[in-house]
Amino acid sequence: MPRGNEIIAALNETLDRSITVMHICGTHEASISRSGLRSVLPSGLKIVMGPGCPVCITPQGEIDATLDLVDKGCIIATYGDLLRVPGSRGSIESCGGDVRVVQGIHKAVEIAEKTDKEVVFISVGFETTAPTVAATIVLEPPENFSILSCHRLVPPAMKWLLEQGEAKLDGFLLPGHVCVVDGYEGYEAFPVPQVVAGFEPEDILLALLMIVRQVKDGRHEVENAYPRAVCREGNVTAKELMYRVFEPCDVEWRGFPVIPDSGLKLRPEYARYDAQKKFDLEIRHVDKHSACICDRVLRGIASPTDCKLFGKVCTPRKPVGPCMVSHEGACKIWHLYQRER
């Protein structure tokens, strides 16, 4: 692989106009900020964040539904990242319920096997994570186990962003680990330069160079800068399992309206594991009332430092919005590394 400074030199030579590239992955933002990548890029090349953090795009209504499950006496199992996301009446961490942080869904099932109580796994995540849930559901966990499916699919959100045009995007860094599972065939329909990117700074620089070259040549295609893990068709076994257990559904994303076919719900044959049905939960739309601009950050039209609350009222200890909560949230990452651009 070429070294970072060689790629930067090539970027400087190739870039012939000002462009904006969006990534859709919290792990990309973490790598970019940690390495200070933005400070070494040519000034005409801007990287913005998109809706790439599953915790951040989980709308408040789904956090509130989790708190409803606590009221019903359920044991809640989920990833640690979700605990501090503010709901309408506190967070999952502060609700006083029996909340267990687990590595993955299989550990939540182990909890259910040892208790008579109802155990609900709050199932967030993109295409990377959903197959792990599907692989567990097909093994038919005990009857006292269910999931609240908060899964989201990346391509429908990209389609929405492109149609909407608000962020004026010239290209996309595609999320490497989403593509490990999903491949990149599904992205080929989008008329914009796209490159699948890995997670080391050199991986990201290489992908940026490939996008800049496409822009210069007037091409738009999907290229792969992460071939050590990603192939065009992805992990076929994982995809098949995912669609055997789940089907797409229309859902809201935080900061976005309802996006068609962008969520995953359990198919009727697995409905007994659907916590929303089992506990008759209503996912309510919640309007935002604070000055928090997480919604604009997630759509790529604002940076964390544009927010009046950033680092003052809103900090990782006392987050106001979800982007300050998750390790993959843009605000938390910028707060950690204090990057200005």
Partner: peptide, 22 residues
């Protein structure tokens, strides 16, 4: 968990939330 991949001892996998995904 190895549900999502077909691997042998000595091979390398990418692990996410306790599952090998590739």
């Amino acid at each position: 968990r190895l549900d999502l991949v077909d691997v042998r001892v000595g091979e390398f996998v990418l692990v996410h939330v306790g599952f090998a995904i590739q």
